[in-house]
Simulated scan of single mutants.
Amino acid sequence: MTAYDVGVLILRVVLGLTMAAHGYNKFFGPGGLKGTAGWFDSMGMKPGMFHARVAATTEMAAGIGLAVGLLTPIPAAGFVALMLVAAWTVHKPNGFFIVKEGWEYNLVLAAVAVGIATIGAGKLSLDHLLFSSSSFYDLLHGWWGLVISLGLGLLGGIGQLAIFYRPPAKTDA
């Protein structure tokens, strides 16, 4: 075990459990799925209940998957898709900086997830434990990790926006 492996473990666990907590909050926080669904409907992600379930499940699965380092590029792709949709539907009108509720935080979460998929989950991961002795392991880091996490993530996020997102009409008050 090296400092590198511990460093990647820290990044994976903090990033993953942070995302999983967001999913948990959508399921069980104030308002629960019903409140999340209403919020999604109001921003143009319809049907809201469908998207509340998809978002909460993806946040929990991607978060836990990244935290334990299991098939790392796949949960990282979930981060990219989730953060792209959140940045586009919620934060884009507010600009870049998070202090004005901009999309800065979304970018950082997605970029760190892709970075982890690119460098690999490290020796303290299920990827290493389960796959390090097989050629499949090569698909879980390096250029393949980058291509899989970024490609699938962008495809998923753009696809979801193209199919489901209908921004509400602006009204002059």
Rank of each mutant, 00 (worst) to 15 (best):
T2Y: 14
Y4P: 02
Y4C: 04
Y4E: 15
D5A: 07
V6K: 13
V6L: 06
L9M: 15
R12K: 05
V14E: 02
V14F: 13
T18C: 02
A20C: 01
G29V: 10
G31I: 08
G32T: 13
G38K: 10
F40G: 01
S42C: 05
M45L: 15
M45W: 04
P47K: 01
G48P: 00
M49A: 15
R53N: 12
V54K: 06
A56G: 10
A61F: 12
I64F: 09
A67H: 06
L70S: 01
P73F: 08
P75Q: 07
A76I: 03
A76H: 03
G78S: 08
F79A: 02
F79P: 00
L82N: 03
L82M: 15
M83K: 01
A86P: 04
A87T: 02
W88Y: 12
H91I: 01
N94W: 00
N94R: 09
F97T: 13
F97E: 05
K100W: 06
Y105D: 02
Y105L: 08
Y105M: 08
N106G: 00
N106A: 01
L107F: 15
L109Q: 01
A111S: 15
V112M: 12
V112C: 10
T118A: 11
G120S: 11
K123Q: 14
S125P: 04
D127C: 04
H128W: 13
F131G: 00
F131Y: 06
S132G: 08
S133G: 10
S135H: 13
F136L: 10
D138A: 15
H141D: 09
G142V: 13
W143F: 12
L154P: 08
L154E: 14
L155N: 15
G156I: 01
I158A: 11
G159C: 14
A162F: 11
I163E: 15
Y165K: 04
A169S: 14
K170H: 15
T171L: 13
A173D: 15
A173P: 14
